[in-house]
Computed example of a mutant assay.
Amino acid sequence: MDAVSFMQRQKDNSADEHRLTDALGTLSGRRPKALLPIMVGGLAAGGLDLISAFITYGWGVPRVIAAGLLGIKAIHGGLFVYFLGVALQFFIALSAAAIYYAASRKLEFLKDHALICGLFYGIAVFLVMNLIVVPLSALHGRGPFGLMALIQGLVVHMLLIGLPISYSVRRFSE
């Protein structure tokens, strides 16, 4: 190998390393930018919703959440079932935050109008949970809802789920 071809190979390797570094920087730069709003919004929404459920329905709520996956017998389950319910609560909230974040990448108004969009997103989450997820769960829950339960569910989802998610995406997204 002569000196000219060696220098050319070094130059090509250097260019390849630079491209790889740029690509890795871009990838790693995007992950934290997406992860922060999803984690903050999802954890806040999941925590606030769980606290609201504890206040309204008592400390057994995580077992009911787990029963949606395991069946009605889970309501009498132990500590594992309880923590599974808590984990499922946060999985659902983080999923809702990830969906909102992904939508906000294409629909800029979701970030620009976080108040209105967050309130409507809370309604959408309520509808998806009560018209799709719960009926398809192992509990096969269905309405009809009493008027007060419907209003309470909508308000909780609007204020404690939709708004934390929309404002976290607005605050922590690029």
Rank of each mutant, 00 (worst) to 15 (best):
L150D: 02
A44V: 10
L136E: 09
A74S: 09
Q8N: 13
A97H: 10
G58I: 02
K33G: 02
P32E: 10
V86Q: 10
R9W: 13
Y57F: 15
I132C: 03
A67R: 05
Y57H: 14
L27V: 06
P135D: 08
A93P: 12
D12C: 02
V155K: 06
L48S: 08
Y57L: 15
G122N: 02
L131E: 13
M7T: 07
D49G: 05
G153E: 14
V64D: 05
Q152Y: 15
A45D: 10
A53L: 10
V156R: 08
V61N: 06
L20R: 15
L79D: 04
L136H: 09
G25A: 08
I165M: 11
A138I: 00
Q152C: 01
L50P: 05
G162F: 11
A44I: 06
G60V: 00
L139P: 04
S173M: 04
Y121G: 00
A87C: 08
R31K: 04
Y100W: 03
F145K: 10
Y167K: 03
R105F: 02
V64R: 02
D16R: 09
W59F: 07
A103E: 08
E174S: 11
L147A: 14
G77R: 04
S28P: 00
F120E: 11
E108L: 10
Q89A: 05
S5Q: 08
G71Y: 12
C117V: 07
L139S: 07
V133C: 03
V133Q: 04
A23G: 07
I55W: 10
A98K: 09
L48N: 09
D16H: 07
S104P: 12
E17L: 05
L84E: 08
F6S: 10
K73L: 01
S28C: 01
P135Y: 09
S166G: 03
L110E: 06
A53S: 15
P144A: 01
S168Y: 03
V133P: 00
L110V: 01
I151G: 02
K33R: 10
V4A: 11
L20K: 14
A74T: 05
A3R: 07
E17M: 06
A124S: 10
H113F: 06
L43S: 08
R30K: 11
G162N: 05
R63T: 00
L43D: 09
P32Y: 12
A97K: 11
L127K: 01
Y100H: 01
V133I: 14
L127V: 06
I161Y: 15
L139I: 11
Y57N: 13
A102W: 11
V128Y: 14
L70E: 13
L163A: 08
L88F: 04
H157E: 07
A124W: 03
L163E: 15
V4Q: 13
F120R: 07
G46L: 02
S166Q: 09
F109Q: 07
I123C: 14
A53G: 15
V86D: 12
P164N: 12
G153A: 10
S166R: 05
A96N: 07
I132V: 15
G78H: 02
G77I: 00
I51K: 08
T26A: 13
R31S: 08
L27Q: 03
V61E: 07
G118K: 02
S137Y: 02
L107C: 06
H140R: 13
L127S: 08
A66E: 09
